[in-house]
Amino acid sequence: MEELVNESGVVAKPLNPEAATEVDMQASYEQHGSGTVGEIYVNDPRMTCRNVNVYYGEKQAIFDVNLDIGKNQVISMIGPSGCGKSTFLRCLNRMNDTIDVCRVTGQIKMDDQDIYDDGLDVVPLRASVGMVFQKPNPFPKSIYDNIAYGPRIHGLSDNARHLDEIVESSLTRAGLWEEVKDRMDQPGTGLSGGQQQRLCIARAIAVSPEVILMDEPCSALDPIATAKIEELIDELRENYTIAIVTHSMQQAARVSQRTAYFHLGKLIEVGETDQIFTNPRHKLTEDYITGRFG
């Protein structure tokens, strides 16, 4: 399934990860001036980010980030707190728009469409790039209404039965159906933390997005709930492109195929997860994963 071809084609020159040499990397480094080590590009990207800078008022939070997010894979973003990984994630579905002082420059494309284009509408963008947040944030509504919220506002269901189907399939895919099917009309806030987070994932799935962004989805959860979510992420990978920010290196190692290491707003290194954790190429990455800071 991985070899599915992107019909729209890829803008950036694809760079075979295997073929990447030190020189090539140096080239990409100079080409974009970003200083990133590793394989920025992938063959079949869902999203491409070029020269992304983010400012909060006067303060710059993200410096010149270039990164591709491959189709149907999980990319994790790691780094010490305050390194800008969450900020960068929130650029991918323009959640930063809700912050007045936040300004984004550069180019982020999704399937060839520049998402920061003036004419682009954030409503369909966010429908196709879903998001799951750090703290589970179910609406103070029933479980059913939580899931049905997205389909309802977007007008996705033809009738009540169709909506029921969407809710059931989303909950099933989020692995929550069996646990909640008998209490759909109870408030979503009454579930346990782990269940709430899976509810939020189901809520995101209900509008059938292509990309799901996860901002430290397990940081508020206990280890057992975390394990469940990780399992779920692994299953979802089949059908969705997932970008996950995490502060846990183990989690990144467990769930992701690619890993990006951020440091002080800069993307330091990106590459295959195995390679990053076993053989980091940049000194900062190495220091971080060996626990020298972070």
Partner: peptide
């Protein structure tokens, strides 16, 4: 997803 986008 495509159907969704059309609806949206």
């Amino acid at each position: 997803h495509d159907r969704t986008m059309v609806r949206v």
